[in-house]
Design a protein around this nucleic acid. Sequence first.
DNA 1: CTTGACAATCTCAACGTTGAGATAACACCA
DNA 2: TGGTGTTATCTCAACGTTGAGATTGTCAAG
Lengths: 170, 170
Amino acid sequence: MSDVVDAIISQWVKERPEVQEDLWPVELLARVQRLARVIDKTARATAAAHGVEHGEFDVLTTLQRSGPPYTLTAGSLLKASMVTSGAITNRIDKMEAKGLVERVREGDDRRSVKICLTEYGHEVTRAAFADHLANYAQLLDGVDRDLVEKTAEGLRQVLETLGDTATTVE
Amino acid sequence: MSDVVDAIISQWVKERPEVQEDLWPVELLARVQRLARVIDKTARATAAAHGVEHGEFDVLTTLQRSGPPYTLTAGSLLKASMVTSGAITNRIDKMEAKGLVERVREGDDRRSVKICLTEYGHEVTRAAFADHLANYAQLLDGVDRDLVEKTAEGLRQVLETLGDTATTVE
DNA sequence: CTTGACAATCTCAACGTTGAGATAACACCA
DNA sequence: TGGTGTTATCTCAACGTTGAGATTGTCAAG
């Protein structure tokens, strides 16, 4: 049996045989991209069911898992989310309007902004995250559990080599 | 050593111990998403260097690898790209304006539109794809080749189970 | 023929992201 | 004190995607 990426690669081999030996990264990276799109759809739907965008959901969970006092700077959220600063500002604007988070400007450095999860934000996050995990499990339903672990471990090593080793966001 | 996802999971375990046993899908899916973001940045930069968007680049390569006559219907491109119909129409509009592809309305079914790679589109694709493969290889430079293969194989099995087994686009 | 179901594409407004730049606060040194 | 560089966040226009719906063509049944 073969997947879509197998088909893509064999098309390339047929159409441009000279690149065959350079296609090995495609085996991994194209699959990551395809799977990412599937995950994206799931995550988008889950978030929407709870009245938030999936970028906003990302911010919510990042805040919640950071532990008390459920507060991070905009900069920390930016690094954790791997998006540009404009995107984070926009997300926080919308989330503040919905009452999910609050901007707190205080402390030593008046440039930095602390983003604080509200009680309402907490509730939404709890419910949405439970749903999220259920949908993740459902997505991988039917996939051998051992295969999931082994593949995850492989990706972990790849990410480590790429330098994706940031310490826990503080 | 541990990567960012390890840190994320251990935050969850500390903050919400009751979900620990439901976190196993995160080990795989979160890593796929993080790696996908890295790939995305690379692909975006590569495409931009050749004057196209990375969605457009996706269309170009799909057409080229489909072989002579380098022509696919809008519907085929839609399925191959995993985006909505609106996105495909928009892409083709822009690409037609740039002279990369042509819309051909002819044949048996007058609802369908054939998208045809122009000579110029061919040239751009050839150059951009070579660059693309080089950047992919560079991205995985330093990653053990055997690890790449094994992880790719794991993802292939996951994708197969998820039903990502479409036949070659015709 | 004509009615109805279906298929392929297009339309368009709302939305989120990007990317470059502006703003403001801090840090360090002369 | 003044100057220079850096850091943290915000601003904003351009852009691509989504998602729902409109349009137009096809096909089978009556």
